[in-house]
């Protein structure tokens, strides 16, 4: 989801007998739901996979600010502008909580950001879609943050202590994001013109499928899931979370008076879940490869932000050095 397709480097799961004493003690600790902390011994694969997963997650939070930033100067009222700004600032915070958690594993923040800018690591596919109308800001808060919540709530119980604590902070802040988004759409649907209502439906039509893709490939195509689940850095399968999201979202969609662009979406009494249509995975893999509508623009914007801020960072460093020299004198 915010971390899609994280490679664990493990072809298959080892059972307890095959493990070294250290590995076994580690796995038993995880099985007993005792958190792994930075100074504890951990297998190399666990460390590397977590760095990959947390950095992807952090990059997603940071890149995720860009589609919303697009509407900051064009928010319809001052109130909406302040709300959107607060939401975006939260996302910057989420990125920072996560980079901090990642650093406890020995990774370097600058290096990981360089990897992002060089296209060596990914961020969530969803942020490569454009925000064409104000309704998209509502749809993102409601659906994209809604999907993020479904993914992040179980991660509060992830086995790695600093990651789990970061997720607890993040989850506390997310529900405001989703509610402000839904309220934007409700306002448009309940008090808006026909044109504004059509704008909401158009926005949902464009985002519906990409949002479902956020949960990652179907379980059959998730070769790394078993290891990640054993390590408890992933707690539910992609398909399970996707289904949970759809089940809770459809009633909200109906309340809005909108529809999903999926003729197969209907309640299945026997399953106790909504059935839904086939996802076009070729689009997902294409976007991940860098061919989504906004991939290039997103990375360019990130790089430019880092480059344009270089003089500020240098000035801060020079100032700190001067202060230190003055104190020493």
């Amino acid at each position: 989801m915010y971390a899609q397709l994280v490679d664990t480097g493990a072809k298959r799961l080892k059972d307890l007998e095959e493990m070294s004493a250290e590995e076994r003690a580690f796995q038993e600790r995880i099985d007993a739901e005792i958190k792994i902390e930075p100074k504890n011994w951990m297998p190399d694969g666990y460390r590397k996979t977590l760095i990959r997963q947390i950095s992807q997650h952090a990059h997603s939070e940071v890149v995720g600010m860009l589609p919303e930033g697009n509407w900051l100067t064009r928010a319809p009222t001052l109130k909406r502008k302040l709300q959107l700004m607060a939401k975006i600032q939260d996302e910057a915070g989420h990125g920072l909580y996560l980079y901090s958690a990642m650093e406890t594993l020995g990774a370097d923040r600058d290096e990981e950001i360089d990897k992002l800018h060089d296209g060596k690591v990914k961020y969530s596919s969803i942020f490569n879609y454009p925000t064409l109308s104000w309704a998209d800001i509502g749809t993102i808060g409601w659906l994209v943050d809604g999907a993020a919540i479904v993914n992040q709530v179980p991660l509060q119980r992830t086995s790695y202590g600093p990651y789990s604590r970061a997720m607890i902070r993040v989850c506390k802040e997310e529900s405001f994001h989703q509610r402000q988004g839904y309220q934007i759409l409700l306002d448009l649907m309940q008090g808006g013109t026909d044109e504004q209502k059509a704008m909401v439906q158009d926005s949902i039509n464009r985002f519906w499928w990409p949002v479902l893709m956020m949960f990652g490939p179907s379980d059959a195509d998730s070769p790394n899931s078993a290891q990640s689940m054993a390590w408890k850095i992933k707690r539910h399968s992609n398909d399970e979370l996707r289904q949970r999201f759809i089940d809770q979202t459809v009633p909200q969609l109906e309340f809005l008076g909108c529809t999903a662009p999926d003729p197969d979406l209907k309640w299945n009494e026997a399953r106790g879940h909504y059935d839904f249509g086939e996802i076009d995975w070729s689009e997902f893999f294409d976007v991940l490869k860098g061919n989504g509508p906004c991939n290039r623009e997103r990375i360019e914007t990130r790089k430019q932000a880092i480059d344009d801020g270089a003089w500020v960072r240098e000035a801060a460093k020079a100032y700190a050095a001067k202060q230190r020299a003055r104190q020493a004198a």
Binding site: L96, S100, R165, Y319
Partner: peptide, 12 residues
């Protein structure tokens, strides 16, 4: 303890 930050100096 709530987390950590990077900064050039204590004030920052």
């Amino acid at each position: 303890h709530v987390g950590s930050v990077h900064a050039a100096d204590r004030r920052m």
